[in-house]
Structures are given as structure tokens and as C-alpha cells.
Amino acid sequence: MGKSDIDIDPAQVEQASARGHALDFPRTRLSDAIEAVIDVVGGVINWIWIVLVLVIVANVVGRYALGVNYIWVEEMQWHMYAVGFMLGIGYALRHDAHVRVDVVAMNLRPRTRAVIELLGLLLLVAPMVYLILLYAIPFTEASFNRGERSSAPGGLANRWAIKGVIVVAFVYLGLAAFARAVRICALLFGVPRPRASR
């Protein structure tokens, strides 16, 4: 037979998967600095899934081949999943990967969309992040003060640490939202000053 393989261009797949609605705003010094931090953390999160695959496979092999099963290994799985998706939410905001319905919106002028985006970040996302943090901090504290641990024998102790991920993740999300708001301000008002190079 002729060619056994059809070549596929990953860049083209990438382009197709990126949603058409992504809004692009100018970069600024301030937002660049914040986004650099966000990307460093995100870079770590991206590997957590591969580690999770390996942990599950190890658990399966241990259980079915060797007849051993550790509760803490099972609990590690959902701990990793929780860290991954909670921090991923801020990372996805930074990369504008959250789903939008843009049938109507795509007909709006870019400036109008930028105003909507800014208002949404200030009036909806900011209060939400603030309130969740306001209640997530005592939530974590209470767990620490009670000395809470897993209620399964052989489960993990220090449950406050995984509960505290809510605080970390919402700070992270708040930073991502702030960086985005800064970039929109740069577009709308020229303050802070946009960086020339893109």
C-alpha cells in the first residue's frame, strides 16, 4: 500500500482549538510581571496530571498485582486533582480559556467588549474573589485549630493544608484577573502605558 500515515500539522490543530472569541489586550510592565508569576505556577500545574496518571497506575498495579492498598495513596489522588483544577482556574483566566457565548458579542466593537470585560472583572469577579477569600481563610483556620485529619484509618493528616488550597487558588485567580484588568485599562485609557513590542 502507499502512504501508511497521514501527516497532521499540530499548529493547525492548535489554531482550530483556540477559540475564535479570544480577546487580545496590550501588554504592560505590571501585567507582564504578574503573568510571569502566574505562568511559573501554571508550568508546575501542567505536570501534575502526568504525575497523577503515574500515581493511579502505581495504585492499580499495587492493588491487583501485589495485593497492597494504601488509603493515603488514594487520598493523594484527589488532593492532586483538587490542586490541579483549583489553580488551573486562574491559569485559564490568564490564557483566556474560559467558555464564552459570543454569537451576539462578536458583532460588538472591540472597545465595547473591552468595557464589558472590565466591568465584569470589577463588579462580578473582584467581589466574588474577595468574599470567597473572606470566608475561605476562617474555613482553613478552623480546620487547623480543630486538628482535622482524614476520617479514614491510614488517611492523611493536616487537612487544613488541602483546604488552604482554596485560599491560594483564589489569590492566584485574583492576580490573574487583576493582570487582565490592567491590560484592558491600558487599551481603554492608555494607563498604565502599553508596551510597544508584542
Partner: peptide
């Protein structure tokens, strides 16, 4: 010995004494 068993509360810890792997 070695069985995977679901149990809640302090009973779970007792089952674990017999080499059971206890989840909730």
C-alpha cells in the same frame, strides 16, 4: 486479611487491625 472493606468510624480502625484495607 488483605480484603478491601468499607467501614466508617472507629469500627474501621478495628477492621484494619485484621489486615483489611479500609476506605470510607
Amino acid at each position: 486479611q488483605g480484603l478491601r472493606f468499607r467501614a466508617a468510624g472507629v469500627g474501621g480502625e478495628i477492621f484494619a487491625e485484621f489486615g483489611m484495607s479500609v476506605t470510607l
